[in-house]
Design a protein around this nucleic acid. Structure first.
Length: 411
RNA sequence: GGAGGGGUGCCCGAGUGGCCAAAGGGAGCAGACUGUAAAUCUGCCGGCUGAUGCCUUCCGAGGUUCGAAUCCUCGCCCCUCCA
């Protein structure tokens, strides 16, 4: 996995390394030209200051940035503080809350800390787009808007779909791509990278840059990582995400829960494999050469090792086998306190009350359902009587479903 | 400015006076099974109630009615077409 330094890598080699797994490169020729210049290229990446908790979906473009950085290019993170302050009334994400400068500052800081897990943040330039968007003023904005037409704007897939489906499109949304494009002008970007959902915006920036007499940026996009459900793109609001700062155990477990079909994409996007390598992996599994579980486990371990270390990954895998394949209790069980006043004179507590007290059910009704469905065990004894009062002295192990386990403590 | 359509549970979406705690799908959860927290199948999926009912829900506020998600009035919000 050792890479040659950029000084000894030819522009052609760099190109192959950088674009081997990209979906869109507009255009390879222009990228090659820029690489041939020998100067460090300015790589633009727009960071969303409203999402400080990074997940593996975010990690994909950041990993690509890392490759550029390793080759000696300059990464520029643009914090969209200007746009965040305006808020985003985009239809599907409800109205994004407006953020105060303090919140943005805080988010940017946590963002940088997490990005640092993947690349060297100290070598990156971090800029706020309010720096050039605020002074732009309405005159500047009008000039900017004069370089594009509504018809071309509506070509964007998202807009045309929403127009068709009769969901609202606010006027500022139409302005967003324009403003984003202007960011490229302001920082004189050579390359902009991101998810395929940004393709339109990135391409439009090329037009806008030309309008401002700048050479157009090269656009590179990668497909969006699907979430653990294997269907929708990974996102916090959908709840199908794996955070890059999550504990190894959690990360491994979530990776094991992705559908088999999603393995290929994870393999390519999270471990920097080429499309060919992805196809090979999937073919081997289909042909029976590779066991799907083994492949998934290997994948999960590698990904976990990126954010923790190989030992932690191995431990997580071993623990997973123990708990889910062998059905044993986890080696490390969190403790849950049962307040003494919940217990009656004989030191007993109603099982339903115990489950909700432990935080395993959001309501008594939910707790009853668990009991009825045979999901509850106390010291490995199945509990099926929802009227039962159980003795609690401390040390008992309460299990509700496969993943909710706690050791009871009276205090 | 004119005309019309619409706001239902986490999401989508039926329901147009009682049979509605509200169809169906998705998500989620549980059980079985397995190769995993995959897939598949089955069940659950507002709250309270140590099981019998009770309570609070269908944008908001009023009203009609024995009875309203369903009808009326006034708000708020969204969409389409014409201008």
């Amino acid at each position: 996995m050792r890479r040659k330094r950029s000084s000894v890598m030819t522009p052609q080699e760099q190109l192959a390394l950088l674009s081997g797994d990209a979906i869109v490169v507009e255009t390879e020729d222009q990228l090659l030209e820029k690489l041939k210049s020998g100067r460090p290229l300015r790589i633009k990446y727009g960071a969303d200051p409203s999402a400080p908790d990074l997940h593996l979906g975010h990690s994909v473009p950041i990993r690509k940035l890392r490759r550029f950085q390793d080759l000696g290019h300059q990464i520029i993170f643009i914090i969209g503080d200007f746009t965040a302050r305006i808020g985003d009334p985009s239809g599907r994400t409800k109205t994004r809350p407006m953020l105060s400068p303090e919140q943005i500052e805080q988010n940017a800081k946590t963002y940088a800390e997490q990005v640092d897990l993947i690349l060297d943040i100290d070598k990156c330039e971090i800029v706020y787009n309010s720096a050039w968007l605020a002074p732009l003023g309405s005159a500047g904005l009008f000039e900017l808007a004069s370089h594009y037409t509504v018809a071309r704007m509506l070509e964007r897939d998202d807009f045309s779909k929403r127009l068709e489906k009769e969901t609202p499109i606010s006027l500022v949304e139409l302005l967003y791509p324009l403003i984003q494009a202007y960011d490229s002008v302001a920082i004189k970007a050579d390359v902009e990278i991101g998810g395929t959902d940004q393709t339109f915006n990135f391409l439009m920036a090329r037009d806008i840059m030309r309008a401002y007499d700048l050479p157009p940026q090269v656009v590179m996009t990668w497909d969006l990582l699907v979430g653990t459900d294997g269907r929708e793109k990974m996102s916090k609001s959908v709840g199908n995400y794996i955070g890059i700062a999550e504990p190894a155990q959690e990360m491994y477990g979530k990776l094991m829960s992705i559908p088999d079909d999603a393995m290929g994409q994870y393999y390519r996007l999270l471990l920097d494999k080429t499309t060919e390598e992805e196809a090979e992996l999937m073919a081997d599994i289909a042909a029976g050469k590779l066991h799907p579980k083994g492949a998934k486990s290997a994948l999960a371990k590698e990904v976990v090792a990126c954010y923790h270390d190989p030992q932690a990954a191995e431990a997580a895998a071993a623990e997973f086998e123990r708990v889910f394949a062998e059905g044993k209790l986890p080696s490390d069980i969190p403790e849950v306190a049962v307040p003494p006043d919940k217990l009656d004179a004989e030191g007993r507590i109603w099982i339903i009350d115990l489950i909700t007290t432990a935080g395993f059910a959001s309501s008594n009704g939910a707790a009853r359902r668990f009991v009825r469905q045979g999901a509850v065990r106390l010291n490995d004894e199945p509990i099926t009587d929802e009227t039962l009062a159980v003795q609690v002295r401390g040390g008992e192990v309460l299990k509700v479903g496969k993943r909710r386990i706690a050791k009871l403590v009276v205090s």
